[in-house]
Nucleic acid binder design. Sequence first.
DNA 1: AAATGCAAGATGTCAGACATCTTACAGTTA
DNA 2: TAACTGTAAGATGTCTGACATCTTGCATTT
Lengths: 225, 225
Amino acid sequence: MADELLDRIIEGEFPPGSTVPGEHELSARHEVSRMTVREAMKTLQAQRILSVERGRGTFVNPLSSWASLEAVLRAAAEGKNDADASIQLIELRRMLETGACELAAGRIAEEDIEALFNYVAAMKAAHSINDVAAFVEADLAFHDVILRASGNVFVSVLFEPLHRVLEKRRAETSAVPAIQEHAIGHHQNIAEALESRDAARARQAMDEHMQQTLDDLKQLVLETK
Amino acid sequence: MADELLDRIIEGEFPPGSTVPGEHELSARHEVSRMTVREAMKTLQAQRILSVERGRGTFVNPLSSWASLEAVLRAAAEGKNDADASIQLIELRRMLETGACELAAGRIAEEDIEALFNYVAAMKAAHSINDVAAFVEADLAFHDVILRASGNVFVSVLFEPLHRVLEKRRAETSAVPAIQEHAIGHHQNIAEALESRDAARARQAMDEHMQQTLDDLKQLVLETK
DNA sequence: AAATGCAAGATGTCAGACATCTTACAGTTA
DNA sequence: TAACTGTAAGATGTCTGACATCTTGCATTT
């Protein structure tokens, strides 16, 4: 129900600033009770997609104030090709991961450094036996260690929805052997940079990894076009 | 109602992984109808604070998967002093703003550059007549131009809740004349760097500004202790 | 012309009922 | 004894209908 209404909003039926139909009308239109409509609206309100003013109506917020990355992604992909959206997501990931890596260099614990090298070893092992699932798992775990080691809880909060959106695509890129080899080298560099506790070096190592990821994605997108 | 329940969760009455009381029980406890309880839960669900499993119950998610910056901030400030949380928020802002500034260098339009210099002029004017509100307004507008000029819609989405959380504190720091002067210089540098369309220089200029902001905040926090 | 009153329509809240799903436990059967 | 099954309890999901409260526009009154 919430998804259906969001679809109608995204398709432009109710542009930002306008009101959505009343609860009774939506109830009739979607063939559910008014209570179900209200619960769906509560979901969209919590994501700051809708604003409710008692006695007046329910209004669609401008896209810039939406708090749901998924919803914005759906809206951004509407009509255009979503290649642009994919690139922007990687750009965002780059900001957060390079920043977190820079912070982690000064805060990471010995055991976490050890864990990083273990995950690199796991990636190498998975690569050698062609186990894509294991490779992706070690890859994700590696990045997760760094995010936690940044000591900044809010980074994880902002990264979590991004993670959810990106994980589907990561399986695709990680299936290419050449990309796996690139990734292993970069992860090795990152782990070594963090071990040296040099913030600038750690940031640069992660930044190069992100650049590589972006290039890989662009190439993949270009090929499938 | 949603806030009351969130308070009880944050206070540790329902730790992550546990279930919250049933809808009937909460209805009785808070003296509202079951429907109101359900709507409040829908709000917390949309923020990924609660997960509902039909027939089993409603569970509290681990803090790392919460999607609401405000809620995490409240939880982080619980018990400890919130100085640490403030610093982490600035760290986060730093990641997003330096990243956006780097992107903007290659994409910003001529008219936006002009707008930046106009806002710097407005900050100078406000500073000379001691108009704090006007100063803050120009400051916010300046940063908003850069975020939009980054050409990345998702940056704005992630930054918006951060903006809301930080704006209260910004008024405090901006009230100090010396800090205003620092800020004017940094903004001037940023605008010039963007004008030169040199990504590395733009990033560095913004990074220095963020470092200054962080130092100002630390000093302010230390003084009030 | 201004102030007042009222009605329509919107959201907010409530109560009670039934449906559906999960789980545990007792009873049945091989 | 062990495995299977049926049933009841408790949880969330949905529905219906009603009343409360707020906003707004319009007709009425002054």
